[in-house]
Design a binder for these strands. Structure first.
Lengths: 332, 332
DNA sequence: CTGAAAGCGCTTACAG
DNA sequence: CTGAAAGCGCTTACAG
């Protein structure tokens, strides 16, 4: 598997490696004769030449690699996101290296180090709790990094996310207009700002609304039992109740609870979830849920990181996309 | 973001780059004095030295990169698989580059080329229809490649997969023992051998079994309407019927059909699916399904590709794992 | 115990 | 229109 290099092409063609490099890179102002050019291309093809991006990277200090750090590639939200980012990255000539942090600061740190060693041109990361130091170091080194989905307080990094606060306000208004007596928010026990936004946009108006409000916060691990227990303790079906699940995993755990206990949606209870999921197909009715514009976000993420790579500025500006409440039949 | 190199360390320490390289790589037979060693390590740390794997790769002709080509990273089966492979790859010091072929031979080819240019040490691929030529070229070049989940007729490559044929035989036996009058196989209209195995292991015994057998084959795109239509045409609930769905996506589409039409499992109909899925949680009863040992398969995949990288032999031997029928409540 | 030097496969400023 | 040469950041056989 000894592979051909431009040196081989040069030798066969009887020209210099410089000449080969010029024609292979189709430089605009290239002054190579049509004849030489054709000969070189032909030889390259015939000996199965594959350009060595590693050598090129070393010389150019550009790897055309982007590191993507997600919490967990096997979760449906992140794998959908990864897929969209993959498609956009390829369009700009980047290749993706992917890693899962599992919400562990150590793993997160390891991943950034590993990716830096591989000389990725930039990183797109979903930050996690206590990844501040790791990110600060990257910022200090002026490493191109942007955030996706999440962000961190006091960490100024460009990023893309949705209007978590506002969409939750909208959901509050929506539910308020429907005159629910009791509303339950099922979210996460975390300091992750995007989740706090999602939570606070929702609960801030309750005090003066007169609506009975409850809140259940579980661990980011999405343990089914924990979620079911929380619902069991907090669900009051004697009132006209709505539940807002802050993620698709929470929603799915919720639905499995409802199915198990024969609670009918929306007759006995109304519900809204965040994000989409394949699993929704299996709920007896169509869900009202919050949709994030993943493709647009991915496109913007790649644009942002490409901008930072091309011209580092890190103005810390986050681009907010509008999430959309898709009204179906789970709220009555 | 100009980064420190061993040259910088050497300059500051007043030693040669060779010495720096030796201590940084902790070579066993290293003859560097404890004093120099400590000084170098200290300096490396203080100037924030990050080893440049690209330079190392170039010199060593080893990138420690593995290319993973799946049909679609956003599908739950492949993202779970990717996650397992990621974990195993890291253990052996490899980093994953991931791409989705979307069942397109052109994309598949592009991906292998891109990965080869990035000098991945090897590739783990889920081959697709008409990717023969691309794979043959890789084999001719003696590029380390192994297959995962799928394989291709007449393409000899090491790989890991499950005993599709045998597990389907077992399912036939299982259903036969339950004395169903009619059995429906919902699979794919494809020549992909692992799916044909899954299919043939099931249908081969029907002729002499006396059980009425139907077969529905849909496109790999898993279009819900197509699957629903097929079920509508072929489902006969007047008989004691069982359905075997050849993938989780098919199974999910099937379940959504049953829910929509108020068909009760297992009272009106029994069913079995292949692979797991988050969505199963939302079906009213626990499913009987086929479980693949993803972790073990991932571990073996990394072992196989690492073997090929270390010592290319490509004996074409596929390692078969036993899928397991997990008996729950969807078959009566 | 340590260093000078070659070389991995490229790109590109410079010279002709 | 084309080539010789330097250099990207490493590793390692060789010499001392």
């Amino acid at each position: 598997m000894k592979r051909a290099s431009i040196k081989d092409i040069a030798r066969i063609a009887g020209v210099s490696v410089a000449t080969v490099s010029y024609v292979l890179n189709k430089k605009e102002g290239s002054r190579i004769s049509q004849q030489t050019r054709e000969k070189i291309l032909e030889i390259a093809d015939s000996i199965n030449y594959v350009p060595n991006k590693i050598a090129k990277s070393l010389k150019m200090s550009r790897s055309k690699l982007i590191g993507l750090i997600l919490a967990d590639i096997s979760s449906s939200f992140y794998s959908s996101m990864a897929r969209c980012i993959e498609d956009e990255a390829i369009k700009l000539g980047y290749t993706l290296i992917i890693g899962s942090s599992d919400e562990s600061p150590e793993k997160f740190k390891k991943l950034t180090e590993l990716f830096a060693e591989h000389q990725v041109d930039g990183m797109i990361v979903a930050p996690i709790m206590d990844s501040d130091d790791t990110l600060k170091k990257l910022i200090k080194d002026e490493y191109p990094v942007i955030t996706i989905d999440r962000y961190l307080k006091d960490i100024d990094l460009p990023g893309v996310l949705v209007n978590n606060f506002e969409i939750s306000e909208q959901i509050f208004d929506f539910l308020k207009a429907k005159k629910f007596e009791e509303i339950l928010y099922v979210g996460y026990n975390t300091e992750l700002p995007h989740l706090l936004d999602r939570q606070h946009g929702f609960d801030k108006q309750f005090p003066e609304s007169g609506i009975s409000y409850k809140q259940v916060l579980v661990g980011l691990e999405n343990r089914k039992e924990e979620i079911h227990n929380a619902l069991e303790k907090n669900l009051n079906l004697s009132k006209r109740t709505a539940v807002y699940f802050a993620s698709n995993k929470l929603g799915i755990a919720g639905m499995s609870y409802f199915i198990k206990h024969n609670i009918k949606v929306p007759e006995d209870l109304s519900m809204i979830t965040f994000d989409e999921a394949e699993a929704y197909e299996l709920f007896p009715i169509e869900l009202t849920y919050v949709k994030q514009p993943l493709k647009d976000m991915a496109k913007m993420a790649i644009k942002l990181i490409d901008d930072e790579i091309t011209c580092y500025k890190n103005n810390g500006e986050r681009v907010t996309f509008e999430a959309k409440l898709i009204q179906k039949n789970s709220v009555q």
